[in-house]
C-alpha cells in the first residue's frame, strides 16, 4: 500500500511528467490558452494515459517478452496507444455523446502526446507490475492535468496583464513554464529514498 501511495506522490509531484521530466510539452504549451480547453484535454489525457499504460504493460508482458521481441517495444506501444485512443473515441461517441462533444478534437490529439508513450516505456524500464503500471499511468495523468490546469489559469491572467513588448506571446508563456518547473524542483526533497 505504501508503495502505491509513493508511486502516486512521485508521479504527481516529485517526478511530474511535464515540469520535471519535460514530456508532453506540446499539449502543455498548445492547448493551455483557455482554461476550458485545458480541462477538457486533461480529462481526455487522464483517461487514455491510464488505459494505455495498462494495455501496453499487458502487450509487453504477454507478447513481446515471451517471444523475445523487446526491440519492437516502441513501435508496438505506438500501435497500442493509437488503438486505445481510437477505440475510446468510438465508445465515447456512442455512449457519452456529451463528454465526446466536450473533449472533441483533443481525443485524437493524445495519440501524439509523448507523455503517453513515455509512461509506457518508463513502466518497462522501472519493471513495474500491472497495478503499479496502472497507478504510474494514472499518477502521471493527474500530475499532467494539475500542471496543465494551473498553467492555463495563469496564462489567462497573463493574457490580460501588461507584459513588456519583447516578452509577449509564447515568450512569456515559456518563462512562466520555466518558473513553474523551478518551483516543482522543490518537491524533490519531499521523499527521501
Amino acid at each position: 500500500m505504501k508503495e502505491y501511495a509513493l508511486i502516486l506522490l512521485s508521479t504527481v509531484l516529485v517526478n511530474n511528467f511535464v515540469l520535471v521530466k519535460f514530456l508532453g510539452l506540446c499539449p502543455f504549451m498548445g492547448v493551455s490558452k483557455k482554461l476550458e480547453t485545458a480541462t477538457g484535454m486533461s480529462f481526455a489525457t487522464t483517461f487514455v494515459l491510464t488505459l494505455s499504460s495498462a494495455c501496453s504493460y499487458l502487450v509487453n508482458e504477454y507478447l513481446l517478452v515471451p517471444l523475445g521481441l523487446e526491440f519492437l517495444r516502441t513501435m508496438t506501444f505506438i500501435l497500442v496507444i493509437a488503438v486505445v485512443v481510437q477505440f475510446t473515441e468510438m465508445v465515447m461517441h456512442k455512449h457519452f455523446p456529451l463528454l465526446y462533444n466536450v473533449l472533441g478534437i483533443f481525443l485524437p490529439l493524445i495519440t501524439t502526446n509523448c507523455a503517453v508513450l513515455g509512461v509506457a516505456l518508463l513502466n518497462i524500464q522501472e519493471s513495474h507490475g500491472f497495478v503499479e503500471s496502472l497507478l504510474y499511468g494514472f499518477g502521471a495523468a493527474v500530475g499532467f492535468s494539475m500542471v496543465m490546469i494551473l498553467f492555463a489559469a495563469m496564462r489567462e491572467r497573463i493574457a490580460a496583464a501588461d507584459v513588456p513588448l519583447a516578452f509577449r506571446g509564447p515568450a512569456i508563456a515559456l518563462v512562466t513554464a520555466g518558473l513553474m518547473s523551478m518551483a516543482f524542483m522543490g518537491f524533490s526533497g519531499l521523499v527521501r529514498v
Binding site: V59, L63, L64, L67, L69, L72, M75, T76, L79, V80, V83, Q86, F87, M90, V91, H93, K94, H95, P97
Partner: peptide, 22 residues
C-alpha cells in the same frame, strides 16, 4: 507477431466501428 497484433487491433477497431456506430 506484429502482423498478428495489428490484425487483432484492426479487427477490434473494425468491430467497434460497426458496434458503436452513431
Amino acid at each position: 507477431a506484429l502482423g498478428a497484433l495489428a490484425l487483432v487491433f484492426g479487427l477490434l477497431l473494425g468491430f467497434a466501428a460497426v458496434r458503436f456506430k452513431v
